[in-house]
Design a protein around this nucleic acid. Structure first.
Lengths: 230, 230
DNA sequence: AGAAACCTTAAGGAGAACCTTAAGAAAACC
DNA sequence: GGTTTTCTTAAGGTTCTCCTTAAGGTTTCT
């Protein structure tokens, strides 16, 4: 079910490479060691990588060349790890497309923190819509369990209320008209009574308010509809 | 017309803040200084930011709290800039949602390189082939969400104002007469009071002006009508 | 300079849109 | 089949936007 995250480790020093791989494994990602520039290129051709850890000083081919190769096509995230940690090389690397730069000797925890941070950033757009969690402010919906948690308290919503909240949460800030709501919540193309929406909205708001009196989640846009503030 | 990229600089030291703003300007981005945690929060509420530079040591509110606020909702990119550069704080920051960490004293070039690197990465994610959008200068209308963003600021428009703006935006440079406006915005063939249009136009212009005082979006063509400058 | 078209601001009334509460109808549950 | 929950309808109240009017000002054209 979980998707494997593949990380290519390009580093000629055997010990360091293994250490890096160990760090990655510990974070539950899948490392692949490459010990030279040419080897790295083969791996890069072969498949897509979620992230590349790249040493700048390599036999056969410099890290800069590989970096250029990577950034020339796919926007694969790259973290440079190098002993050559002058400001110049740092800046040059970042400018030529690297996402981060870690100096050698490195701190184990920092490496994994930076890897996770970058992956977090790059994964954001890949989040499939089938991801079964919706979050906004302190509202959390588990779509699979159909459970709503607001400000730490579980909400007991009715079917309609739940459907409305899920719709609003699916696109925060988007204004949903009453027709939108009827189409989505009631599965009806024709317009029912507007007041039906009003009542459910009122009930939903009451429950949200009870869970967190300090927030006003749903906004009314006069003449247009409703929207969830984000 | 290039789109403006807005960067919030949260740093209590006046000199450093100004220096950072200068760096940002030099890279052709648009900086906004905030000198305290509370001030930062106000700016964060007010509009969307493409990136936040955040000092950890602030009066009134710690950077950690602000970081938590930011990451709790939108995935706004954050770079921490701090003198507290122990491994522990570094790692803690990254793990709690920061995208990068720069130690003080910092290298000017490195700051801009890291900013550009992170923006490069986050811009890619935004390439969501989103729905029907209208764009002109720095006005953006999401027709589906009925959301209007001008110069990075969300606009709260009434139904009439929204309809007028959408009409103008649908054909920049085209001159819309008052009859056109009545037909399209009011769904009425007959002419209402001309002054009604005046008043709505005035209100709309006010809201646009508040969002961006430097632009004059709507032009009056004497005896003919109005048009959106493109 | 004078006239016409347009801008701005404010205030009040009208009416639409919305909120809330309660009670009967429908559906779901046991 | 009866009970409970949920949905809808109805009614009365509230709020907000729009429209209109009006007055004083500005801009543009002749």
């Amino acid at each position: 079910m979980e998707q494997q995250i593949n990380i290519l480790v390009v580093e000629d020093n055997n010990d360091i490479n293994q250490l890096l791989c160990k760090i990655i494994k510990k974070s539950n990602f899948n490392p692949q060691a490459a010990y030279s520039g040419t080897e790295a290129l083969i791996y890069l051709e072969k498949q897509k990588w979620d992230l590349v850890l790249l040493d700048l000083m390599l036999p056969g081919m410099t890290g800069e060349e590989i970096l250029a190769k990577i950034t020339s096509k796919d926007p694969t995230p790259v973290i440079i790890i190098s002993a050559k940690d002058t400001q110049q090389t740092k800046i040059a690397s970042l400018r030529s497309g690297a996402d981060d730069f870690i100096s050698k000797p490195f701190d184990v925890e920092e490496v994994s923190a930076r890897i996770e941070s970058l992956l977090r950033r790059t994964k954001q757009n890949k989040e499939t819509p089938s991801s079964n969690q919706l979050t906004n402010k302190d509202i959390q919906i588990d779509l699979e369990a159909k459970m709503v948690v607001v400000n730490g308290t579980k909400l007991a919503l009715t079917v309609r209320e739940y459907a409305i909240l899920v719709l609003l949460m699916s696109s925060p800030n988007k204004i949903f008209s009453k027709s939108n709501l009827f189409a989505s919540v009631w599965n009806e193309s024709f317009q029912g009574d507007d007041n039906t929406v009003n009542v459910h909205m009122s009930n939903l708001r009451n429950k949200l308010f009870k869970a967190n009196p300090n927030e006003d989640y749903i906004e009314t846009i006069w003449g247009m509809g409703y929207r969830l503030k984000s």
